[in-house]
Amino acid sequence: MKSLWINPVLNKEIKLRFRSFKGFLGVIFYLFALGLVALGFIIVSTMYGQAAIFRPEESRMMFTVLSFVQMVLILFMTPGLTSGAISGERERQTLNILLTTPQSSVTIIISKLVSSISYLLLMMIASLPLYSIVFLFGGVSPSLLISTFCIYLITMIAIASLGVMFSTLIRKTIISTIVTYGVTVFLAGGTAFLTTIIGQLFMYQQYSQSIVPYLTAMFNPFFILLSNFESYLTDEIQRLSGIDFPLMASFIIIYVLISVLAIGISIKKLRPRMKAQKRIG
């Protein structure tokens, strides 16, 4: 088990990623974007007040806004970080050599994934001081912060797994990137659109129930994030669909499934299919 987590491939990935100037720029860009939003929010909310005061309700509001912006940033960065994981090596003509080493497909894929996620985690951790503004003014419990970060992590792993999968299946990084962004846009925007449209359709037919809004909403990280703050939306969706099972739980199950499936496919497709090991006897 130890060799799976501390292995040469992961070591190499982390070294190369954190050594490049690009890696540093990524963190700068991330914090700058997030900081701008936080600062903008404080300026706007204190601009029209009598005194320059920042109330706990506003602090909670700011936390919500920051969380959504951070989710957008995660959804924006994860595909870019992962969709070239394998195809990039293939294009740089380093993959063949890597595949002739005894490093297993599992190690290579998991290492690629872990290194991308650790980079995203670094950005998230680097953004924590921004959240301290929120804590300074109150209104948000630590448990809310933890659950929010858990949602990020689950989303991140699923999108990263999809990115690695497409980069294994598709030879060209550019196409793999487009496909990964396409799927991400569908998960983040497409499912929200579908849920809203279908929700509207059924709202006028009080007697009928449909599980469709539930099915589309459980894929949407924004709905899940929102339900973490305010439960009215998910309550409504669950009422409309008549399903008692919590939306959050369905989200976790489905995203974990996506991750497992995508990682499994990547591992299987990294190397050519060989015959099964000869049975002894």
Partner: peptide, 17 residues
């Protein structure tokens, strides 16, 4: 894999190393 040393006709290197 443990018994062969392979050098492909075209190959890349990790530039940052």
């Amino acid at each position: 894999r443990n018994h062969i040393g392979y050098m492909p006709d075209f190959f890349g290197v990790y530039d940052q190393f």
